[in-house]
């Protein structure tokens, strides 16, 4: 049974590494918010595996907090992006329903 626990830990670690690579590469800020969301899901999974391995219910409130934190984080980032883009559109005084070919330079302003 120990082999299975080690496999679980390795899978979660590799998943977190891949998610971190996407967090660093992510072309837009929404990709980064998405990968942070996925990383939170991986963290919840890892903490849950820890709790199950030790038969220890101490970390369960942490799972509760993390499951709410992911929602607040991604929604606030998305709202921030929407507001900033709309302000940009207002400057151009010409608003399209779907703004295509918007090339943002992330990391400069955010």
């Amino acid at each position: 049974m120990n082999v299975l626990w080690i496999i679980i830990a390795v899978l979660l670690g590799v998943a977190a590494l891949l998610g971190t690579v996407r967090l660093l590469l992510g072309p837009s800020i929404l990709d980064r918010a998405l990968s942070v969301d996925a990383l939170l899901a991986f963290a919840v999974t890892g903490l849950g595996a820890f709790a199950a391995f030790n038969r220890d219910p101490t970390v369960l409130p942490t799972l509760l907090v993390l499951s709410l934190l992911g929602f607040v984080g991604s929604v606030s980032v998305a709202k921030f992006v929407a507001r900033r883009t709309q302000e940009d559109d207002d400057d151009e005084q010409f608003v399209l329903p779907v703004v295509e070919n918007t090339v943002e330079e992330e990391g400069k302003t955010s």
Partner: peptide, 13 residues
């Protein structure tokens, strides 16, 4: 669940 996380990591990348 861990396997799904791993697959999601690959897909995310």
């Amino acid at each position: 669940g861990a396997l799904l996380s791993f697959i999601a990591g690959i897909g995310l990348l």
